[in-house]
Simulated assay, not measured.
Amino acid sequence: MHTITVGCTAMAGVLQSDDEGYDTSPLRYHGDVDAMPGLLDFAVNVQGSAPPPWLRDRLAATLDGLARYPSAAHDAAARAAVARRHARSPDEVLVLAGSAEGFALLPALRPRRPVVVHPGFTEPEAALRGAGLDVTRVHTDEATGHRLDPGAVPGDADLVVIGNPTNPTGVLHPAAAIRALARPGRVLVVDEAFADALPGEPESLAGECALPGLLVLRSLTKTWALAGLRAGYALGAPDLIARLAAPRPQWPVGTIALEAVLACSEPAAVAEAERAAHALIAARAAQAAALAAVVGVTVLPGQAPYLLLRLPDGHGARVRGELRAAGIAVRRGDTFPGLGPDHLRVAVRPPEQVARLVDALSTALSPVLHEIEVPA
């Protein structure tokens, strides 16, 4: 692992470079840009095309109340449901308009030396740099399976952001390694947007109450197909939650999103998510095997509901273009710090869709097969 400090610059434009030579606008590039209408979507990590019927009915039932402002009582009920789900107290919960809102609020903590572990979700760095802060990047390495080395994080960092499992690598870091990053005077932000997609939520710190400075962010987007609603929550000590929430406007989360957080935190929903996680992990294993059988495709180790692929050197952009021409959207990898144009991220999808991806990849890579050494 290695560290680099990146200065703050504007993030407008397309693949614009700052004075340090770093692309800045890609920090705000996400899979929805790749997943244009009409394409088979492997770019966005949302499971399913719509929420389950019971959840749709539950949310629809709130529509008749939309003439009223979101109520404090509704927010309290949502916080109480989340608190029961993670064995915490309601004052340790902040309901968010998506976990991305939690990252947007990080500058309110007034860090002096923020660190973001990469490759990882880029919104935290975008928010911090957008507030005029210099951000130190700590890079994990493919040679070590992108495993976290807590010792690589500078000792004077007063805010550290890491995903677990990490997006886009899919690596699940041991909880002990994450805990090793905590220390007095430091806020440790753990992005657990995909934690409920793994059976039993291994290595999660969502229920950790005693770790100083811990802030865990959760999303409902992926498991419940609610990307368009924006619903999630933060977990942390009451004083930390209060600091994070200080700049928010009145009524920051709408009525439907409050109901979604409440509904998806109830025991029946948690049990349903657990069943879905078991099915998802089996589908992931089958998809990884199918993709690994394509000559020229390297499937990197991971456990999340997406796979990071590496293609032959210099062919990533061309292959991505050919996949798009074949009607398939994948997530480009070169907008993630630490990855390059030959990396692709693909979501876990049903077998018939995976078969289309495998066929399209095989076709796109066939011109370079003679350049690739196939083990005997």
Rank of each mutant, 00 (worst) to 15 (best):
M36C: 00
V294E: 12
H2D: 15
P247Y: 05
G254I: 12
L280Y: 09
T335H: 06
A282G: 08
R275Q: 12
P238N: 11
P184R: 11
L365Q: 05
R137E: 02
A180C: 08
G232A: 05
R137V: 02
L188I: 04
L339W: 00
M36Q: 08
H139P: 01
T62K: 12
C264K: 12
Y69D: 14
D334V: 01
A60P: 05
L188V: 05
P165W: 01
A127R: 04
A12E: 15
P341K: 00
L300E: 11
G296T: 04
A73F: 13
A273W: 06
L94F: 14
S362C: 02
H30I: 01
R230G: 10
L66H: 14
L240S: 11
P26R: 05
C264G: 13
A347Q: 01
G65E: 15
G120N: 06
A257I: 09
A152N: 10
L59T: 10
H2W: 12
L229R: 11
R58Y: 14
L280V: 12
T221W: 02
V14Y: 14
G130Y: 03
T335M: 02
G151E: 14
D134G: 08
D41I: 01
D141F: 08
P199Y: 05
V299P: 03
D64R: 15
D64W: 12
T255Y: 10
L323R: 10
L339R: 00
L211V: 02
Y306S: 11
P337Q: 04
I4K: 11
G102Q: 11
G232K: 03
A104D: 15
H146F: 15
G132R: 08
G31T: 04
W251D: 08
R68K: 09
F194R: 04
L172H: 03
R345T: 11
R230F: 13
V330G: 04
A180R: 06
G185N: 06
H86Y: 15
R137I: 03
L220V: 01
S265T: 11
P351F: 10
A325R: 10
P202E: 00
Q47H: 08
P168M: 08
V374F: 05
Q16V: 15
E20Q: 15
I4E: 15
A234S: 06
A76T: 09
V319N: 00
S17P: 09
P119A: 07
D23C: 12
A282F: 14
Y22S: 06
P52W: 11
H74L: 14
A276F: 03
V160W: 02
K222W: 03
P53S: 07
A83D: 06
L339K: 03
R324G: 05
A290H: 13
L198T: 04
R320A: 10
A77S: 14
D19E: 14
L262C: 14
V368E: 04
D32N: 07
G338L: 05
T169C: 09
R113K: 13
S366R: 12
P199T: 05
L357Y: 04
V153A: 06
A257N: 02
I4L: 12
V117Y: 02
L240T: 07
T122I: 03
A80W: 11
A131P: 01
T122L: 02
L235E: 10
A269I: 09
S89N: 13
L211K: 07
A360T: 04
R68P: 00
R331A: 02
A304T: 00
